[in-house]
Write a protein that binds this DNA or RNA. Structure first.
Length: 422
RNA sequence: GUGGGCGUAGCUCAAACGGUUAGAGCGUCUGGUUGUGGCCCAGAAGGCUGGGGGUUCAAGUCCCCUCGCUCACCCCA
């Protein structure tokens, strides 16, 4: 049997209520702030991701789903949410709208990785990006959006971690400081961290190796290397978060896995933090647009994995929305009655009543068994006898007496039976 | 990419030392009621025991390979 590709999932109907709860809660929070939806292609030119993500990142080096199409172009399945939105902003001239342009999306993300708990090759993210305004208040707004979404879902125990990486003009000095600090300790670094010493020293801070972690304690901190504007930005953001009563902790080792970030970076992590447990994260990326050959466009945003939100939702005990109720089951008791049954179902649905319809003539017993398995409160029976007399038998499933109505009155009759019950 | 655990019906699980035709519960369908649900009872359908190879008179069971699931590392959401 052909099976689904590794690391993908079939989302079955019983998952739908929780899924909808997350996406609809997020959409609601977006709309409350004037964030509007955007959708970009599932495939992009590979350069979009390779040029923005950073050569030394794992994502660029080994996790992208890339292929050559029949025309010889290299395309890549969306490996992260931000670059495509920035590309769409530039390509469609959204800088002509009032700034910042506030966008949100719900989209699948593809990364070739070994699957495990909370990690898939195709996962889904809720995300938002605010483009065209460099104010720290925009950072605060974006963080507030994600924080409020979690809160609205009843998830209130995530820790917000915050850091600032500074700007490109101060980055070299900080990078050099890290190299100067770690080089004498190189023999105590694991091989991976030693490689990063030349390729991407900031990412050494992200290492989970206990010995490296210990060395990081005394490592230079990016906050000490911020320029005056970046420092002011960071302080202003902190003040805004405090006035919004959004608790945070500063994590000097928070650097994020993508290279395009500058200044603000943040992550929301659960209290029982395992190693791959980040629920959502993001930051500012004022130089991303330039990496793809566009003008300078400041931006800030986040992505949050829906599957991981769901894991935390279980812990919070929040319950999902009920689905559209089915009120009526229409049962054709003979094949000749199927057409009439479907006509009645349509008439009921036009009035907004949820109806399931049996598709084959079968015994009342099997239809009624099926009807009581559904959530229907009334069964409408149409058999040979009813057809001959132009009536429909209405059987309330709570045990009250069955009644008969003429076909033309069936909709009214069913509605009054439903009304009596409630 | 590295390491551990696990693969028997749609689901949850049985099948002593290798030994007849691989079973049960739940679920599904049908019947018990010539046209009336839930409960109960009965019956049926549903398995190349993940796949391939090997050992053996004999393999769901032992060995090898492979695929998949899962957990952890790594990395990220």
């Amino acid at each position: 049997m052909i099976q689904r590709p590794r690391g993908t999932t079939d989302r079955l109907p019983d998952m739908a209520p929780a899924w909808r709860l997350v996406t609809e809660t997020f959409q609601r929070q977006c709309e409350l702030r004037g964030f509007v939806p955007i959708s970009t292609p599932t495939i992009e030119r590979s350069e979009l991701f390779t040029r923005t993500t950073g050569d030394a990142t794992d994502l660029a080096q080994k996790e992208m789903y890339s292929f050559e199409d029949r025309g010889g172009d290299s395309l890549t399945l969306r490996s992260e949410g931000t670059a495509p939105v920035v590309r769409a902003y530039v390509q469609n001239g959204l800088h002509n709208l009032p700034q910042p342009v506030k966008l949100y999306y719900i989209t699948p993300i593809f990364r070739y990785d070994r699957p495990q708990a909370g990690r898939y090759r195709e996962h889904h993210q809720i995300g938002a990006e605010a483009l065209g305004d460099a104010s720290p208040a925009v950072d605060a707004e974006v963080i507030d959006l994600l924080w409020s979404t979690y809160r609205a879902l009843g998830i209130d125990d995530l820790r917000l971690e915050l850091n600032s990486l500074g700007d490109p003009d101060t980055r070299p000095a900080y990078r050099q400081a890290l190299v100067d600090y770690f080089t004498p300790l190189a023999d105590r670094l694991d091989s991976e961290s030693r490689e990063r010493l030349t390729s991407n020293p900031l990412r050494i801070l992200d290492s989970k190796s206990p010995t490296v972690t210990e060395l990081c304690e005394r490592a230079p901190r990016s906050l000490d290397y911020l320029g005056e504007p970046a420092l002011a930005h960071f302080q202003s953001l902190q003040a805004l978060l405090e006035s919004l009563e959004i608790a945070y902790t500063i994590n000097h080792r928070l650097v994020r896995g993508l290279d395009y970030y500058n200044r603000t970076v943040f992550e929301f992590v659960p209290p029982d933090a395992g190693s791959q447990s980040t629920v959502g994260g993001g930051g500012r990326y004022d130089y991303l647009a330039e990496l793809i050959g566009a003008a300078h466009v400041p931006g800030v945003g986040f992505g949050s994995g829906i599957e991981r939100v769901l894991l935390n939702l279980e812990r919070s005990g929040t319950t999902a929305l009920p689905p559209q109720p089915i009120d009526v089951y229409v049962a054709p008791l003979a094949d000749a009655a199927v057409a009439e049954a479907m006509r009645l179902a349509r008439r009921l649905r036009i009035t907004g009543v949820g109806v399931e319809c049996g598709f084959r003539g079968a015994s009342p017993r099997s239809h009624l068994r099926r009807a009581s398995r559904s959530q229907a409160r009334v069964a409408a029976l149409i058999g040979q006898r009813e057809m001959e007399r132009g009536v429909v038998a209405l059987k309330p499933l709570n045990g009250t007496a069955q009644v008969e109505v003429v076909q033309a009155e069936a909709v009214n009759g069913i509605q009054s039976v439903l009304a009596e019950e409630t």
